[in-house]
Nucleic acid binder design. Sequence first.
DNA 1: ATCCGTTCTCGAATCGATTCGAGGTCGATG
DNA 2: CATCGACCTCGAATCGATTCGAGAACGGAT
Lengths: 367, 367
Amino acid sequence: MSESARPTLSDVAARAGVSASTASLAFSGSGPVSDATKERVLAAATELGYAGPDPRARSLRRGRSGIVGVVLEQRVRTAFLDPVKIQMLDGITEGIAPLGAGLLLLTDVGAVDLPVVDTTGGVAAAPALSVENAPVDAVVLIGCSPRLSQTVAALRRRGIPTVAIEGAAGSDIPEISIDNRDATRRGAQHLRDLGHTDAAIVTLPLDPARTRGPLTAALEAGSTSDTASERLRGAREVFPNATGRSAAASSIEEGLEAGRVLLADPATRPTAIIAQSDLLAAGVLQAAEELGVAVPAEVSVLGFDGIRVDGLQHDLTTLVQPSVAKGRAAGEAVVRMLADDGGEPPASRCFTSVLHVGETTAPPRAH
Amino acid sequence: MSESARPTLSDVAARAGVSASTASLAFSGSGPVSDATKERVLAAATELGYAGPDPRARSLRRGRSGIVGVVLEQRVRTAFLDPVKIQMLDGITEGIAPLGAGLLLLTDVGAVDLPVVDTTGGVAAAPALSVENAPVDAVVLIGCSPRLSQTVAALRRRGIPTVAIEGAAGSDIPEISIDNRDATRRGAQHLRDLGHTDAAIVTLPLDPARTRGPLTAALEAGSTSDTASERLRGAREVFPNATGRSAAASSIEEGLEAGRVLLADPATRPTAIIAQSDLLAAGVLQAAEELGVAVPAEVSVLGFDGIRVDGLQHDLTTLVQPSVAKGRAAGEAVVRMLADDGGEPPASRCFTSVLHVGETTAPPRAH
DNA sequence: ATCCGTTCTCGAATCGATTCGAGGTCGATG
DNA sequence: CATCGACCTCGAATCGATTCGAGAACGGAT
C-alpha cells in the first residue's frame, strides 16, 4: 500500500495507530474524536504527505460532488463575450456561495463521443463530459437552445436538480426570467411617446442556424428563442408593422452590420431602432456614426440589458435588466433544491427591467 | 434496490438477466459482449430509465474524473472581464478538446471553509471546493498570485498534473508564457525611435493588495507579479527613469483613472504613455479625450495584448500576444501529461509578441 | 468420441472514503 | 464496590461501477 503510490486514509490511520473510521472522523471533524487522537492522525497525515480525502471517493459515498454545472448554449468563448452572460455567471457564483461549490462549464452540443487518437497513439475511449454524465449536483441552464428539451430530459432522467435562466424548460423546472415582452413594450412606448412612428428592430438570433438577414415572417414563425420572440412581440405591440434585421449573435459587430443596412438609405431610414441587446445597439450606434447619421437627432436607438458597454461614449437609452440578480436567484434556487430537507422546488421568478432614458433617444426630426 | 431510488447498473443487469460485470461491459463497449446480450442490457436500461453509469463511481474506479480545473487569481467575474483571460480560456478549451473534459472554474483564494448555516437551519459542513480537494485530473494556473506557491504545493502533494500560464510555478511545472520583457522593450523602443524621451508607465497590479497609486520604488520592489515586473523592466531598458502609476486591475476604468492623473498637468505631462494592457490603454485614451489631449499629436499611447477593445475607435499601437495560442498550448500540455504513457512532462513554452503600430503613436510634438 | 480453441459471461476484488450502531474504557455517583 | 453514563473508537457495510482472471458453452478438427 505504501509503495510509491499516494497514501490513502487507511495508510494514515495505520500510521497513527487508529482505525480508518476514526481517521475519517478526525478529518471531517464531524464526530467525537479526542484531541489527542485527532492530533496524532493529523501528524501521521503530514508525515505521509497525505493530501486529504480523495474527492472522488468522498463524492461517491456522500452522493454529492460539490460541483454545479452551467450549461451554455454555445462555445465557451461566445458566452464569455457577452457581458450579460458574464454577469449572470457572476450572480450564480454568488448565489451558490453557501454551497462552496465549483462551477463546471458545459455546453449543450450533445454528447458526441469523439473517437480521438491522441498523439501518442493511445485512444481516448472516454466519452466527452456532458450534461449526460458530468458529476454535478445541480445544473443551471443559461438561455434556451434547440437542444434544450433533450438536455432537460437527460437531467430529469438523472434526477439532477435544474434551474433555467431565460428558457422555458418544463413545468417542474424553476425558471428565472425577466419581463422581456412588457419591458420591450415600455421601451417602444417611450419611442412612440416621443413621436416615432417608424421603428425598425434588430433581433437576437431567432433560429438554431442563427440566420443573419432581414426579419421575415418565416424566420419569426420558426423562432426557437423565447427571449427574442418575446421582445419582438413587445415591440410589435407598439409598432405592429415594424420590420428589421435578425442578427447572428449578440455582438457589436452584428449590430454594426444590421445598422449599416437599416441606415443606408436616407429615404427608407427608420427614425428609431429597437435593438434587442446593448451590444447590438452599440453596433447600430457605430453604424450611425460611420454613415454620418446623428443620434438621437436623426435616429433614436434603444437597447436592452443595461450593461455598460465599456468605451461607449453614448449614454444609451435601454432596458436595464438585473442580470446579476438573475444569476444569484438561480444560484439560490439551486441551494434550496439541494437543501437537506429537500423541500418543494422553488418557484420560478420573473424579474422586472427598468427603462433607463439616456441620450440616444429623442423626438424624430420634424420634416 | 428498485424502490423509488434511481436504478443502478446492478438493477439493469438483474433485469436483463446478466451479471453486473457484463452489463458494465455492454455499456462501456470495451470488451467482448455478444450483440444479443448488449441489446438486452440496453433495453433493460431504457425500461428502467437508467441514465448511464454514475460518474462518481466511475471516476473513483477509473481514477479519472474527466475534469480539468482552471485556477483564476480572483473572482470569477474579474477574470471574465478581461478579454485576454477569456481568449486563454477559449484556447484551453480547444487544447483539451481531445480529452473531452470539462472545465471547472476555481479561484485560489484558499480553502476557507465557510461555516455556513443555510436557511433551513442545517449546517453545510462541506469545505468549499478548492484546488485542495477538487476532483480534477489536471489543473491550469492562470496568472500568478500571492498564493501561487501554496496552490502549487497543494497540487504537487495531490500529484495533480499542472501547467501554468504566465507565472513561474516551479521547475517541474511547464510554463506557458510570452516575451513580456523583450516585447515591452521593443514597444518602448518604437516610442524612442519616434523621438520620445518622456514616457510614463501604467502597470498592472503589482502587489497582492493591488495598490492603486504612484509607481514607487517600494511598490516595484515588492512586486509579486512576474508579468507586471517583466514588462516594467522591458520599459525601463529604454526609459530607465520612467515613472508612472500602478493600477488596481486591468480595466478601462483603472486606465482612465491613471490617465487622468498622468495627463492632468500640461506642464508635467509625458509625451508617451506605456500601458501594460490594452484595457488600461483604452482608459488612458478616454482620459486624453476627456482632457482634450490629442492622441497621438500630444501624447502617444502604447498598449499590450492586442485584443480588440470593442467600441474603441482608435487603432491602438500595441504588442499583440497570442492569447488563444497560449491557452491552447496549455491545454495541449495537459493532454500530454495525462497521456497513458505518462511520458516526460512537456517543456515550457515562450511565445512571441508582435508590435502592431496603429494610430496612437507618433513623434512628439515639436516645441 | 475426444480434445482444443474461441467467444462470451460471471464472480470477486477493488477504487477510497463515510457512516452507523455496537462495544469498550473510565470517572463519577449511589 | 457495583452501576450508570459519557465519551471515544472500531468493525463492517455501503456508495456504484470497473476489471481481471477463471470458467462455461460451443463448434470444429482429428
